[in-house]
Amino acid sequence: MTDVLARQDRALTPEETEALLRDRLGDQILSSSTDFATFTVWVAPGGWHAAAQLCRDESLLAYDLFDCLLGVDARDDGFDVVAVLYSTSTGNRICLRTRCEGGRDAPVCPSLTDVYRGADWMERETYDMFGIDFPGHPGLEPRILTVENFEGWPLRKDFHLASRVAKPWPGVNEPAELDDEGNVIEREPEVGGAPGPYDLDKAMAEQARAVNASEEDQEEGEGTGDDAQASGSEQQDEDEAPAPELDQETYDKLIAEGKSERIARSKAKAALIKKQRAGGGDTGGGGSDEGDGGDDQPSAAEKAEARRKEQAEARRKKAEERAAETGQDDDASDEGAPGADDEEEQA
């Protein structure tokens, strides 16, 4: 311990380090910050290699441990590259950060492989994930983590996560999309343009979406049926009031036959869906989802939203019922709700 403390006494402070770098590299050093206990120095792309070289060779700095190198998506400005260096002799750490030249189309950053051996795989990984070219690197290909014929740059923000495109978030809380007041923003994720999920992904997304839609139809039908049987006609009215979508013809016919209103309604609904399916089949091909299906039938995301709302409603009702049964006051049910959220997150 004492040895370590003695070493850290000799270490330069962040201000001194920045002054030293500025002295040697002039206006190539742009700015620095020590936010969140992380000493970051912004370097112009032209001074990137020289800065790393200086950090390693200058005896006052002596950053000998190459910790890591990573890319960051910087929105319209392109991409950033960060190199984290550590000095085993002074106990200091520095994060050099630069913005790649070439914008989003052809980002380029000089390679550090001749300064630090460890930059080799780190730069290959950054190339693999962001498509940043590192001139001077002995060989960025073949792609290090993804498969060799992979298309697109996975960690760019315009590369959409296929599973999130295919299926909405399976919980009440959507982690990514909340407005300022904390309300869930419901929006249907778009299938990415260039260079997002390639054709296979798109096809899989379409397929999954179709399967989801049909599953939800079935579940909805079963769900309302069970509810109706369990809790009588009042709740059923509430459930069905916002979406009175059923085949009026079949409904009238069944009522005339003397069937109960409930049975008639659910059968009419099924008939409507059957008709729509048949209509989609006639027009044929994959275009049916976007064509007539899109006009008459709510999309998967809208259905999911409706279902989510239903579930939330049912949960709240249950909690209220439970509170009423046990005779507890409102506080108890308030405590119950966050607990349920936690369980969902862990699941």
């Binding site: 994930m129 792609r143 290090i144 983590l145 993804t146 498969v147 996975p154 960690l155 590369f159 996560l161 999130r164 809380n173 982690p175 990514a176 997150e345």
Partner: peptide, 20 residues
């Protein structure tokens, strides 16, 4: 030759709540 078990955790983490 690595990458046979690449599961894209860094991408997945960008779509998860900090607690998740």
């Amino acid at each position: 030759v690595i990458g046979y078990m690449h599961r894209g955790f860094e991408k997945l983490a960008e779509h998860r709540d900090y607690r998740q």
